[in-house]
Design a protein around this nucleic acid. Structure first.
Lengths: 148, 148
DNA sequence: TTGACGTGGATAGAATATGTCCGAGTAAAC
DNA sequence: GTTTACTCGGACATATTCTATCCACGTCAA
């Protein structure tokens, strides 16, 4: 199991944006974090599609958070960048091969899928318990605002 | 985030092995589930390296569980097949770019890494709460033993 | 001796993650 | 109103990983 590196970038960007009082261009966000501008742009677009950031075009344009940092959870950002699909996808192999179970026994998800789904639910619940505002409180806000 | 399909195969194989009274060849396990023999073999080798199954070579060889199914958690199997690496790897971008934090502030993991680590811990804890024996109780044991 | 089986490596194709580029559109400046 | 600089957005390559296959080799039982 592997999580895209863009997730890390996106979360850090949201934290920085929560400290800014005006839109920040994608290129500037990339410089601030020392990452690829164009690739970060891709993830910022994903955040925009998810309604987490609001892009403004033209000169002096950039990205800004669409709502209060306390209303944006880490899970929101992860889902926006990494996609909403669950990590585990049951391929119903219980219905294949020599010991295929009859269809009438397969109305409910198989035990394996249930266990994996429950684990992912715990994962998401944990991520949903922290907001961008919580993370912003752990960084030196003055230093960030000074760098802007 | 994506979980290898081999994880699903491996768990189902462990459940079947818990119902068998003698070693089952990898090819037979593949037939029982209708999956690729050679690719499943790779995952079975991973289970063997992790000490979950015991291979026996030569004719009438095969795989058998090394211990009681109640002592093998789903997490054990997932880690064996998917690898022990965490899904999220902090690349310390807080130390890069224009707003790089001074090293003395980076002794403890950054807030982002802490949140992701905590979520993965919840995920693993959930997976560790179910054993192969639990899963075996949800399938028709008579049907499985008949297919063997 | 023979046949069945696991082991490990080499190989190939598919899917995804990563990284780059250029065009369309917009808003500020003059 | 025109120009200009700047932005976003999607299309385009590259690298890595996952999936899958095959073969040569050592092992064990019949």
């Amino acid at each position: 199991m592997k999580l895209s590196a863009g997730v890390e970038w996106a979360i850090h960007c949201c934290v920085v944006l929560s400290q800014a009082d005006r839109p920040l261009p994608g290129g500037r966000l990339a410089e601030l974090h020392g990452v690829s501008k164009t690739y970060l742009a891709k993830h910022l677009q994903a955040l925009a599609r998810a309604g987490i950031v609001q892009p403004s075009e033209g000169r002096d344009g950039g990205y800004a958070l669409t709502r209060d940092p306390g209303g944006i959870t880490v899970l929101d950002v992860v889902r926006a960048v990494d996609g909403p699909d669950p990590a585990f996808r049951c391929t119903e192999i219980r219905q294949q091969g020599d010991l295929a179970a009859p269809p009438e026994e397969c109305r409910r998800p198989c035990g394996v899928a249930q266990v994996m789904a429950e684990a992912e639910r715990a994962w998401r619940t944990s991520l949903a318990g922290t907001t961008i505002a919580d993370l912003a409180a752990t960084v030196d806000g003055d230093a960030v605002r000074a760098a802007l």
